[in-house]
Amino acid sequence: MEFFFSQVLSGIASGTIYACLALAVVMIYQAIHHLNFAQGELAVFSTYLAWQMLEAGLPYWIVLLLVVLLSFGLGWFLQMVVMRPFQNAPMLSNIVVFIALFTIFNSLTGFIWGHDIKTFPSPFGFGPLVENLGISRHQAAMMAISAIILTILWAFFRFTRIGLAMRGAVSNPVSSGLVGVNVMAITALGWGMASAIGAVSGLLVAPVVFLEPNMMLSILIYAFAGAVVGGLTSPGGAVLGGFIVGIVESLVSTYVPVIGAELKLPIALTLIIVVLLFQPAGLFGRRDIQRV
């Protein structure tokens, strides 16, 4: 039984990683109603920026702040310059543009910083949080930071005028525009926020999995799985979904003998398909109902 609990804890630990990125995925879904396949690569790019600044000797917290601001700017820029012409394009065009962004940032990161693995520091350290509990201080910090981001996001959507405008701009861009919401700026804000959250998740993930250009690809799949399990319309659900995915992954790879420790991606795939089949809006998501 103790072994079981330690597996669950290790699942929760990797679940935090997925939860962070799942949050960014849901965030951008809230802002533009698309899944951004380049999300992971943007986060990796931001993490490399942070690595560069840390190498230059800047203190961690200043770097964090700078990178969050820079990533916000990058997201804003991408929406305003690259995505803007595609706002009324069919979905397929949008997906192709996301793929293009994916290859651009993946290749750019590799070109600037090389493909070798880099270590990334954690300001929290890797010592155990409490004796005999399988959670390190860094993992605890990841959970705490995810919780903080989640709270801020919840408050943002619930209590601020801009949050309300963003919800409106997604559910009905035309009417929102008519009542004076600057839909374009709001969408750009959504992109910026998603990139900023992605950057934070990159900075938190990098110490655990090591920094390299393809760091986020498999994590992104788990994050998608988490977002789907929780529901694409629910930030809190996405975080919980991330944890569920982490725990399922850890338990399945321990107790199902066929699936080795290295071959865990099919689990995420199965989770996505099963959840979509039985609960298409996710566990906590809203189902969109459209009038014919």
């Binding site: 899944l35 991606l265 995420a268």
Partner: peptide, 16 residues
């Protein structure tokens, strides 16, 4: 979007 997601993860998981 959901079909895109399911098939995207199918593609990523295929080598494994």
């Amino acid at each position: 979007i959901y079909l895109a997601l399911a098939t995207f993860s199918l593609a990523v998981a295929m080598p494994q």
